[in-house]
Amino acid sequence: MAETLDKKAAAAEPLFGKKERKLITDPLNDNNPITVQVLGICSALAVTSLLYPSIVISIAVVFVCAFANLITSFLRNSIPKSVRMIVQLVIIATLVTVVELALKAFSYPVYKNLSVYIGLIITNCIVMGRLEAFAMANKPWRSFLDGIGNGLGYGAILIIVAFFRELLGKGTLFAGTPIAMNIIGPSSEEVSYLLNTNLEWLSWYSNNNIAVLPAAAMFIIGILIWIQRSYNTKLVDVS
């Protein structure tokens, strides 16, 4: 008897149905946190000058966003409306502290490099915005998926911006990791050693200092918005 009841419940609410899939795919394009909702630009754009820290921040945001959504959704019926902001901030701040301590323990150089920007995930509007808009009104599992989706949509933009900024600004990819690659630019000694040729034709590029400046991130996002809106005309003039 219990089994049939369970089956019925499962049929009524599939664990990973079309709606649930949409929760994850929607923030990647139609409802992207950065280019459409304009939330969460603040905290992490300054870290996009290198690819590796951006990936770390993206993972941190996915983690914080997903679990903050989950916890808030569990508590949503017992949070009084007047103090909900403080409760949400405490949940987020706790998760961010977990991330900070974990990063300090496992990857100290990255932690040093990111300095205050880890703490600023707390005030990343996308986390707070999703808690307000979604987790306070939806069931835990769906809120969890929504958190993952928005974290991924956010991370995708971050990684695209970081890719161009590092490539154009330093000529490298993944600098600061064991798999650092020197793609273009003058010092390609390791590559020439590996390929056993003198790759002088790769050395024409001199680093573009504008791409290292924070301003370059703004230009790249502006161009991304332009590209997205020319394909997705229903987004034009949303804001």
């Binding site: 280019t35 996002i221 502006g222 918005i225 809106r229 949303v238």
Partner: peptide, 10 residues
């Protein structure tokens, strides 16, 4: 049109 508003602000 694609750049109007938000894109231009960036």
């Amino acid at each position: 049109p694609g750049l109007r508003g938000l894109g231009m602000a960036f």
